[in-house]
């Protein structure tokens, strides 16, 4: 359980530090990266994934939501808010309730700015990571509003810090 908390707490930790110390973000990249590395060394050993068979569909649905939102927001110039709302609404018409949450999680990942994700490949990777994290963190903070966004932010932070240009 500690492992799950460590994973989901990453973006909250980042947000709290940036809220508390306005100039923290200038030196924060290194600290975040070491935290991410630590978590990903610990995570595979300690995190128990409920059902491995659910990981691939979850990752694909999340990646689909991320790509759709990113494309709508940036290529059709709808902006991230409208784009994520459209993806969420379309999801409610075609998907079961659990899958709606996964596509909405992907939509949050897709709200990332072009400055952070200059290529669509990074969006796909972040979407896939988001879907995996969803399965790993499925029972963590159940019923807390904003949980999906926190998982999405964790996925985006992991990709930005490892494959992207950093914070």
């Amino acid at each position: 359980m500690l492992c799950q908390h460590a994973l989901i707490l990453l973006p909250l930790f980042v947000a709290t530090l940036e809220l508390a110390i306005p100039f923290f973000s200038k030196t924060s990249g290194l600290i975040y990266l070491s935290l991410v590395t630590f978590i990903f060394i610990v995570a595979p050993k300690r995190c128990a994934i409920g059902d491995w068979r659910k990981i691939l569909p979850s990752a694909l649905i999340s990646a689909l939501g991320a790509v759709a939102t990113f494309a709508l927001a940036n290529h059709l110039d709808l902006g991230p808010l409208v784009a994520s709302a459209i993806v969420g609404l379309v999801g409610t018409f075609f998907l079961a309730e659990d899958d709606q949450l996964k596509i909405y999680l992907g939509a949050f990942v897709g709200m990332t700015s072009v400055a952070r994700f200059p290529s669509l490949g990074l969006v796909v990777v972040a979407g896939l990571v988001g879907g995996v994290l969803w399965q790993v963190l499925n029972e963590t903070w159940n019923g807390v509003g904003g949980r999906l966004g926190t998982i999405a932010a964790a996925a985006v932070l992991v990709v930005v810090l490892t494959l992207g240009g950093g914070l």
């Binding site: 700015s113 400055a115 807390v144 926190t150």
Partner: peptide
């Protein structure tokens, strides 16, 4: 967390 997707959700969760 400017430009990071999930920022608003993180603040909502906080």
């Amino acid at each position: 967390l400017v430009g990071i997707g999930g920022r608003l959700g993180t603040l909502a969760a906080l």
